[in-house]
């Protein structure tokens, strides 16, 4: 019996631009982290897996079927892509109902499953609010709801934590872990090593469209000690936020971004800092507009890995 997700020498290029090349891997149940800097080919690989893109070479098999030939297999797949695929005039509940109806559910089933999904992603109290009035983090959570509402076997998440507030982030990580533990095949892409680190030990590392490493994350984790994790936060009053954060021993450095209303934090203990951050935000009632992490540290690790390899092969 083959693995739920099989990539066999898969290549995809856009004209002269390479998306992915020669990717061969098998993914089983549980959470697999797809790690790579921006432009590494993570989104391309996920889109090839869902059948949205046709590979130029190689074979893709999900849940025993070719995703481009067996259209019904999509009912068993949940895909959270990186775009903003929303209709702002719909309410969150209506958006999920519509998505479920497209999956082939009847009106009553769609309503029931949509409400369940909103509950799961913590948007039940915002169900009737227009999506246009949702914050970035809420939209991300709604996207997650759309991905899992139809109870898929295979869940593909493309940068699911991008732009999420600390509370939503914590909740989402917990959900992803639960889905993996429940036996789902979950693939999570990210350019932030720390995010994947908190989710799973099982990783695939992509760089320049090629599969760079596959397996246990621990070996890579050590490399991080040399490179601090960066967190960029935008809020109405960054000075007030920084006053609270500077007192935390997890924070190594705070830089003010003059062009925007944001601050850049550096830390060697991202886990602890994210926890502290959530506490500060809730206690001080600070509304976070944007929270993201630049890929400087992961890029450094990749540079190290690729450079190291090149030197070895030389």
């Amino acid at each position: 019996m083959s693995a739920p997700v099989v990539f066999d020498d898969v290549a995809k290029w856009y004209g002269e631009v390479l998306g992915i090349n020669g990717v061969t891997a098998q993914l089983g149940p549980g959470v697999t982290g797809l790690l790579g800097p921006n432009g590494a080919g993570k989104s391309t690989l996920l889109k090839v897996a869902t059948g949205l893109l046709r590979p130029n070479r190689g074979r893709v098999e999900i849940l025993g079927s070719d995703p481009r030939r067996d259209i019904e297999i999509h009912r068993r797949v949940g895909f959270c892509h990186d775009g903003e695929d929303f209709y702002d005039t719909l309410s969150g509940l209506d958006f999920l109902r519509f998505s479920l109806r497209l999956n082939g559910f009847g009106i009553r089933q769609a309503d029931q499953l949509a409400r369940e999904a909103l509950e799961i992603v913590g948007l039940a109290d915002q169900a009737h609010k227009r999506v246009g009035a949702y914050s970035k983090g809420m939209r991300q959570r709604l996207k997650l709801g759309q991905t899992v509402a139809h109870k898929p076997d295979l869940i593909l998440l493309d940068e699911p934590l991008a732009g999420m507030d600390p509370v939503g982030r914590h909740r989402t990580l917990e959900l992803i872990r639960q889905w993996g533990e429940a036996g789902c095949v979950v693939v999570v892409s990210s350019h932030i090593l720390h995010e994947i680190d908190t989710l799973t030990n099982n990783i695939m590392m992509l760089s320049h469209g090629r599969l760079l490493a596959e397996g246990d994350i621990h070996e890579v984790r050590d490399l991080l000690s040399e490179h601090p994790h960066q967190i960029y936060i935008e809020c109405a009053d960054p000075r007030a936020l920084s006053r609270h954060l500077i007192a935390l021993e997890e924070v190594q450095k705070i830089n003010f971004e003059r062009q925007r209303r944001g601050i850049m934090l550096e830390t060697f203990q991202p886990d602890l800092l994210y926890q502290q951050l959530a506490k500060v935000v809730v206690e001080e009632r600070i509304e976070i507009e944007l929270m993201t992490s630049p890929d400087d540290n992961v890029q450094a690790v990749f540079d190290y890995l690729t450079h190291g390899r090149t030197e070895e092969s030389d």
């Binding site: 892509h81 775009g83 209709y87 998505s99 497209l102």
Partner: peptide, 11 residues
Amino acid sequence: DNAVPLYLSKP
């Protein structure tokens, strides 16, 4: 709205 993948990732 980049919503086409929303439709085509469904059956």
